[in-house]
Amino acid sequence: MSTTVAPGEVHLATSLAEATAMLADLGKDGEAVAGGTWTMRALQRHVTPRHGYIALKRLPELHGFEPGDAVDLGALMTHSELAAIDAGPAFECVRSAARESAFPQVRNVATVGGNIRAIGFAEADLVPALLAAEAQLKLHSPGGNEVVGLVDYLAGRETRPAGEIITRVQIPTPSNRRSAFERLTVRTTGEYPIVNVAVSADIADGVVRMARIAVGSVEPVAKLCAAATELIGRPADDVTAMKAVGEAAAAELNARDGRDAPGWYRTSVLPTLIQRALARLATDSN
C-alpha cells in the first residue's frame, strides 16, 4: 500500500493488517507507538524523529490476558496491569519487575511490547524478567505470523522485518517453578536501575532442576547468564552456591559505563542482587 501518513503524523490504526502494512511501507521512517514513553524521549536520546507513527491502541489482538499453563499477555498490557496479575510463583519475576519499574505515571501507560521493542533501552525492567521466565513472542507482519523466543528476538532485534508487530507474549507457568526480581537504583529522575536481575528455577524436593538468571542494565541488552547452570543439582537454599553463581555471572558480563554508574560498579553490586533473588526462591519453595 502507499502510506497516507504525513511527516510527523500519528495515524491511529484500525486493524492489525492496516498497521503492519503501513509500517512496512514506511520502513525505517516509521514507528509503532503504544504508551509512547520511549518514543517521546527520542530527542533526548539524540534520535531523529520518524516520518510517521502508527498508534496501536485500538487493536483488540494486542489487548487482554489469558491464564493457563502459559500466561498469554497482550502486547499492549501496561506495567500497572501486569503488576495486578497473580499468576503464581513462575510469573512473580514479571509481576515484580512491572510493579517496581519507573513511576506510577509511567507504569500506567508503558507497555510490555514497548519495553521489549525499545532499542537502546538497556535499563528496561521487564526484559530480564521475561528472559528468566522463558517468554515467547507472537509476531505479526505482512508475511504472516511467527512465534519467536525472546532470546532469539533480542539477538536480531535491530534487523527485524519492517512492519512486524509484537502481538502477544506467552510465559510458561509450571507448578514447580519459582522466580524473583531485584533491582538497584540511584533514586534520580526516571528511576532507571543501575542493575536489574531476574531469576527462575524449577525446584523439586528442595533441589534445583532448572535455573535461569537474566541481567539487565549492565550490558546494552539484557542477557541470560550461563553461570545459572551451576545451580542445577544443588539444594535451593545452598548459600555457598548462590554466592559462587553470583560472582560467576558478574564475570561473564562486559559492563557499560553510564552517567548513573561506571561499569565496575554495576558488576560489583550484581553478585549481591543475584544472591538476594536466589535466596527468595529458596524461601518461596519451602
Rank of each mutant, 00 (worst) to 15 (best):
A222D: 01
A279E: 07
A222F: 05
A84T: 03
F65C: 10
E61R: 15
L273M: 12
A87I: 07
N286T: 07
L150C: 12
P67H: 12
T189G: 10
R107Q: 06
L131N: 03
E247G: 09
T14Y: 00
G74H: 06
A13R: 04
A277W: 06
G163R: 00
A277C: 11
L62F: 06
V221Y: 03
V147M: 10
G190P: 04
V109A: 12
T173M: 10
I85M: 06
G233C: 11
A211K: 13
E230M: 15
V106W: 02
L281K: 14
D237F: 04
N108S: 13
A90Y: 06
V186P: 01
L184K: 14
T4R: 14
L16N: 01
P67K: 15
S179L: 09
A204S: 14
R276F: 01
D238M: 10
E252I: 12
N108E: 03
D152V: 11
W38V: 11
A248C: 07
A222S: 15
E66T: 15
V208I: 15
P271A: 10
V269N: 06
V195E: 02
L76A: 06
A204G: 07
M1R: 14
A21S: 13
F103D: 09
L62P: 02
E247M: 14
T272I: 08
I116G: 01
V199T: 13
A13I: 02
T4C: 07
I54M: 02
A97S: 07
L137C: 05
G88S: 08
T14R: 15
L270P: 05
T229G: 04
A214F: 04
T229D: 11
I232P: 09
D72P: 03
R266S: 01
A282G: 13
Q44M: 11
R178K: 14
R212H: 04
I54F: 03
R168L: 06
N115R: 09
A211M: 12
Y53K: 14
H46Q: 13
E219G: 11
V169F: 05
A118Y: 01
P235S: 13
K223H: 01
E191A: 15
R107T: 03
F91D: 03
G143M: 07
Y265M: 13
M242I: 05
A19T: 00
S2Q: 13
